[in-house]
Amino acid sequence: MRRIKLSVNGVTYEHEVEPRLLLVHYLREGLNLTGTMVGCNTSNCGACTVLLNGQSVKSCTLFAVQADGHEITTVQGLQSNGEWHPMQTAFHENHGLQCGYCTPGMILASVSYLKENPNPNEEEIREALEGNYCRCTGYENIVKAVQQAAGQTS
């Protein structure tokens, strides 16, 4: 067992964890933050995307011990003072949610990407989301949502 101390959605946690515990399982089962999904388990689908120090990462491909000393943001930590993050609002207004399973990962990957490129075009958005799969509907509304959020944050 290994002692870790990290910040998740602004709250500091300290836990003894097994080194092989994946970050996604720590978040879901250790902290009960079930907004982060388990999808493919192979680093492909992006359902488990969270922010590590503000940058998108796949929490199924990170051990919880690697997050020691770092800041994690999950979809449940995006809102502030009861106000949705502009990306959450944009997904809501454009019906980017669809079945909802990929949504937390889509939103966090998009939030991370707009920090790197605040004014992306449609093609750039599609490329930036290549590591996040929708398996129920398609990407039209998701891309529209990111375009709307980009317009607001730029």
């Binding site: 995307t49 940058q55 998108s56 990462v57 796949k58 990407y113």
Partner: peptide, 9 residues
């Protein structure tokens, strides 16, 4: 390589 989240790590 991979995708942006993979490239971050």
């Amino acid at each position: 390589l991979g995708d942006p989240s993979v490239q971050h790590r």
